[in-house]
Design a protein around this nucleic acid. Structure first.
Ligand SMILES: [Mg+2]
Length: 229
DNA sequence: GCGACAG
DNA sequence: ATCTTGTCGC
């Protein structure tokens, strides 16, 4: 299998025109990332960080919200506005949002025990969603949380939780919180069971609080851009 | 060929 | 994701 350096992967957006019309190369990158993903249980998680992106025109707004699960407080928030150059293509979201998220994490004052990404992790046709790209490059436990299913068949275990199976493998879980579904999957360095524990620890007022805040921050910033503020 | 399709 | 106000319902 072809190998790709962190340097190459982190700056993939700088050579996006080489990749843009070369789906085969994108699939090779995804196969490489998928081969590097590790799953393990983790015990202590107090600080979590949530990442999201929003858009206005050709601008991408990337946000991070770092949250203390014990004291129930946001300890850091950041927003960055840059140009986007890759379109949204299902299964290739990592090329559009991934590099911005990784850079955002590296600029942060605090480090988190677990990172939550708005998008799928291993619950992806090549087992290499956006959260896997981010988790592989930051080398920290990372979870993918998506609001809609990309692939797989749901097998409900009970009213509020189910497995999502793809090609005879459990690649993710679906959980219902206040009647709303979330698809959870491994990004990197954490196992699916721990992903579920972390996700539920984040729930506050019917929402995965840090992700909601990151989403609001990104959306509100994009709306201000639209108004010319 | 047709339909599905994270954000 | 974004374009968009008020309005229906728990
Ligand atoms: Mg998003």
């Amino acid at each position: 299998m072809e190998e790709f350096s962190h340097e190459f992967l982190e700056k993939i957006d700088e050579r996006i025109n080489e990749i843009r019309y070369n789906i085969k190369k994108a699939r090779q990158i995804q196969a490489f990332i998928a081969s590097k993903i590790k799953e393990k249980a983790i015990e202590n998680f107090q600080i979590v960080a949530a990442l999201d992106c929003s858009y206005f025109s050709n601008k991408i707004v990337t946000t991070i919200v770092i949250y203390d699960l014990i004291n129930r407080r946001i300890i850091e928030e950041r927003t960055k506005i840059l140009n986007v150059n890759f379109p949204y293509i299902p299964t290739l979201l990592f090329l559009r949002e991934g590099p911005y998220m990784v850079r955002m994490i590296k600029e942060t004052k605090y480090s988190a025990d677990v990172y939550l990404v708005d998008g799928h992790g291993r619950l992806h046709p090549y087992k290499a969603g956006l959260a896997c790209y981010v988790g592989y490059l930051i080398e920290k436990p990372t979870i993918g949380v998506a609001k809609k299913k990309l692939i797989g068949e749901v097998k409900w275990i009970n009213e509020n939780i189910g497995n999502v199976i793809y090609e005879n493998e459990i690649l993710g879980k679906v959980v219902k919180v206040c009647n709303k579904e979330y698809y959870i999957s491994v990004g990197n360095l954490i196992d699916l069971e721990t992903c579920i524990k972390v996700f539920f620890s984040c729930i506050e007022g019917c929402h995965p609080y840090p992700l909601l805040k990151a989403h609001e921050l990104a959306t509100n910033t994009a709306k201000k851009l639209a108004k010319g503020i």
